[in-house]
């Protein structure tokens, strides 16, 4: 659906990282963790494409949140929004994380901004009393986003930072194998940069754990019509926007 959503709250939660809560009851009611929204940034004709953002939270039934990093024109525009501003949003789009097989233990793996869709998921899992463990990585302590939320929502957090300011000094993929050995998850839900996800998929296969990954790709329509945002899978190109953004990691041609 396409809605006009009013900004209810906006916070800069870390340097250049913002969280915005929009009043969007129709989207909030049907949103599933892993789905995304496609946001019109700017009023002028010179923004040709909407910008996609994971739904970071949609549990209040009338609002949704996004968590994003300022990286270019569209996100700079979003970062300047004020409470009461109105924004054109399409969503919820895509397929979220699949919980069909009712896994016993779940491991969330979040690299950098990859935490964005996983908070919504963690919240849902906590409500269902699923045992959830988190492995999180970022450049530094400040960018280990939503740490307190995760502490509340999941049983255990293992962290890595590139500068060693919190947790282990290194990459998330350095600490993942040990976390798997220790916590024995039935399934991994991962989001982060493509190179990280490739490594996570590889580790998951080696450790024989199911793994779902939320992918990003340059998008135009966001609804499955234009075939811009494809990813190579074992059965040919699939659309990240409409067939994903969450895929079984074994399906992807890494």
């Amino acid at each position: 659906m396409q809605v006009k959503a009013t900004v209810l709250q906006k916070d800069e939660v870390a340097p250049q990282v913002h969280k915005i809560r929009f009043f969007a009851p129709r989207i909030a009611k049907s949103a599933q963790p892993g789905q995304f929204v496609h946001i019109k940034c700017g009023e002028e004709q010179n923004y040709i494409l909407r910008r996609p953002f994971s739904i970071h939270q949609a549990n209040s039934s009338d609002s949704i949140e996004i968590l994003f990093k300022v990286v270019g024109r569209g996100t700079s525009w979003l970062a300047k929004l004020k409470v009461k501003d109105s924004v054109d949003i399409i969503g919820p789009l895509g397929n979220g994380f699949s919980l069909k097989s009712r896994p016993g233990k779940i491991m969330l793996v979040a690299g950098g901004m990859g935490i964005a869709p996983l908070i919504f998921l963690a919240d849902k899992l906590a409500k269902e009393h699923t045992k959830t463990y988190t492995v999180i990585g970022a450049a530094n302590k400040e960018l280990l986003l939503d740490y307190m939320n995760l502490k509340r929502l999941t049983r255990k957090i293992t962290a890595a930072t590139e500068d060693g300011s919190q947790g282990v000094k290194g990459l998330i993929t350095d600490i993942l194998p040990a976390a798997i050995t220790e916590d024995h998850p039935d399934v991994i839900f991962a989001c982060g940069p493509f190179s990280m996800l490739r490594e996570v998929a590889f580790i998951a296969r080696r450790e024989d754990v199911d793994c779902q990954v939320a992918l990003e790709e340059l998008m135009a329509c966001g609804v499955g019509a234009c075939l811009a945002c494809v990813v190579k899978t074992k059965t040919g190109f699939k659309r990240v926007c409409a067939d994903g953004p969450v895929f079984d990691s074994r399906e992807i041609e890494w």
């Binding site: 494409l49 790709e217 340059l218 998008m219 135009a220 234009c226 075939l227 811009a228 945002c229 494809v230 990813v231 190579k232 040919g236 190109f237």
Partner: peptide
Amino acid sequence: SGNPVPRI
């Protein structure tokens, strides 16, 4: 099958 990404 179309072209490899990035396509746009």
